[in-house]
């Protein structure tokens, strides 16, 4: 638990430092995710050591969005009378992006024979 948490936090720290010092357009945690994926791929023992803690945190990933979500309620007035337009924009664009993205993925996978097995 202690070692796994240290690995996770240290990876994020390295990601944050790299993102800021190199002025990358990606946030530190995302950089950390990419580098830890590569580390896991080369060091299976590390992956197994971190697995229980990572699974514990990811098991309730939704919970972590609650504080930011509560912040949204107090700021709904920021939508400034554009409520209907923005609601439609978010609903339609999200539905379209999910449908178009998933259909494209499935279509190209069939085309290139990149099936899942």
């Amino acid at each position: 638990m202690l070692h796994a948490l240290t690995v996770i936090l240290a990876t994020q720290l390295v990601g944050e430092v790299a993102a800021r010092s190199l002025a990358l357009p990606v946030p530190g945690p995302v950089l950390g995710m990419v580098s830890l994926t590569l580390a896991f791929a080369t060091l299976p023992a590390l992956r197994e050591a971190v697995r229980p803690v990572a699974q514990g945190i990811l098991g309730h990933l939704s919970l972590l969005f609650v504080p930011a979500g509560v912040g949204v309620i107090g700021n709904l007035s920021a939508l400034k009378g554009m409520g209907l337009g923005l609601t439609l924009a978010i609903l339609c664009s999200t539905a379209l992006a999910i449908a178009a993205g998933a259909l494209t993925f499935a279509f190209v996978a069939r085309l290139t024979g990149a099936s899942d097995d």
Partner: peptide, 29 residues
């Protein structure tokens, strides 16, 4: 949220061979 994002490396690493096979669909989608 930050550490959890880092933890997404676990499912990614577990699925790395399948991700590699799906490179073209991933780029297109």
């Amino acid at each position: 949220l930050g550490p959890a994002t880092v933890c997404l490396a676990l499912p990614l690493a577990d699925n790395l061979p399948r991700l590699r096979r799906a490179l073209l669909p991933v780029i297109a989608a």
